[in-house]
Design a protein around this nucleic acid. Structure first.
Lengths: 253, 253
DNA sequence: CAGTGGTCTAGACCACCGA
DNA sequence: CGGTGGTCTAGACCACTGA
């Protein structure tokens, strides 16, 4: 007897395999906010019933999302929506090292917080429609390790996606700023693209970082994305390249 | 009846699951050179017989190695040892872009090729035992796109791991240099670590790149590893940061 | 102890490849 | 057409969690 596709939306005769469809459905539930960060998903058996497929198929879908760090499986407990905890920051999205080889997790001081209309260039980067007026938040931060400045950071966020964001909510959170996006606005960053430029410090950057004008700096631009490849953050960091560097890995078993 | 562990070396009662042991065994075969780059592995059914486990278990092990880009599966054909082809270079280990956003695959000109004794610092980076004399190859290259210099590159290789390497073999190959390591010396790079520094061009680098002294440069140091986390290459690239930048991605579905 | 995810089996059918 | 990997099922047992 053929499987009934109507009830669940999963279709064995579709071009995509069932476990890919499971993946899509779970991503859709996450994008819709049905399951929120930190929350437990239904068990694999329950999902298998709900979607009308075998447990193996559910596992295949969940496995890919777990590999992407979107879900977290805990044996004996359940499967959970990943959170941007401090521990997670230690191994993802954090690549600044001092030049003597110590990984840096800088403190964040919020210097300014403004709401304004997005310039065309920024609107384009954040995927906002041309020809319309879009509010954005513009944040300026100083990142420092101990008393030493590490980087000047500017963050631009599409205003409509971050309801309820305030300077206060950012200042009070000791956490990774992506945890603030999650907890305050329900925005989940799952992927980033970075461009790393070498440059010379201009007067304002030099003053902020307490280095000489024309000192070498690393300008790191990042676009962060949530589900469905939707850009949610554009940030620029100006790192003091005299004291710090950037590391990446690739490949590996 | 319990599985017999002696014959194959796989042991259901070991702390590692069987599919991890499969993975280890395959990596060992690769490190031993039993299966060479581009070569086809035995079929999953044959490996299942050989290791005394189910096909599913073989698949689980191979899947992880395929995700690490160490093996390549081709439906209807078989499973193969990955090669460092030009196509592969396009999506792995190549991150230089011009500042107007075009990905750069520079040409390589070999300027010098020397064999010498490794200084202590280099020996340490390449994991060579202290207090012994180790031959290394030291290569200097100019990377350029069209007529424009992109970067000066220095490569250091542990001499004993690269028998038969000559300036000629590198000059004649139009391929990715990692393909030369594979084809000439049987060395497979599977993972790299990179450190990205911002700096100012000194006189010699400036002359090579045809830029002004104290122009901004990106100094990219890379250590490349083969199986068993064995370092096989240390390279330093000095990129003209006025015209080029570096990109990385992280995360994603 | 019951419930979770983790591993593993034996087998089925499919899609793709090349002779 | 036979052989390959790709997907999927049903079911088993294990390891870990927390009440």
């Amino acid at each position: 007897m053929p499987r009934k596709p109507a009830k669940t939306g999963l279709d064995i005769s579709a071009p995509d395999p069932l476990y890919k469809q499971v993946e899509e459905r779970i991503l859709q539930c996450l994008a819709d906010g049905e399951w929120k960060p930190g929350q437990q998903l239904p068990t694999e058996t329950q999902l298998a019933d709900r979607f009308g497929v075998a447990v193996f198929t559910i596992r295949a879908g969940i496995s890919e999302l777990a590999a992407s760090k979107i879900l977290v499986r805990k044996q004996g407990k359940g499967t959970f929506v990943a959170r941007h905890s401090l521990q997670r920051q230690r191994y993802q999205f954090s690549h600044v090292y001092s030049n003597d080889g110590v990984q840096i997790f800088p403190d964040r001081a919020l210097l300014s917080f403004a709401k304004e209309t997005a310039p065309d260039a920024i609107a384009g980067i954040l995927g906002l429609r041309r020809g319309e007026r879009h509010p954005i938040y513009r944040l300026n931060c100083l990142l420092s390790a101990g008393a030493k400045p590490v980087a000047a950071m500017e963050i631009m966020l599409p205003g409509r996606m971050f309801p309820g964001l305030t300077a206060r909510s950012i200042r009070e959170a000791q956490e990774n700023i992506y945890a603030v996006y999650q907890d305050v606005c329900g925005i989940n960053v799952i992927r980033v693209e970075e461009r790393i430029y070498g440059a010379l410090a201009k007067a304002d950057t030099a003053a902020t970082l307490k280095i000489a004008v024309n000192s070498p700096i690393l300008r790191v631009e990042r676009i962060a994305y949530t589900y469905k490849d939707l850009p949610v953050e554009y940030r620029i960091r100006m790192l003091d390249a005299g004291k710090f560097h950037y590391r990446t890995d690739e490949g590996g078993v």
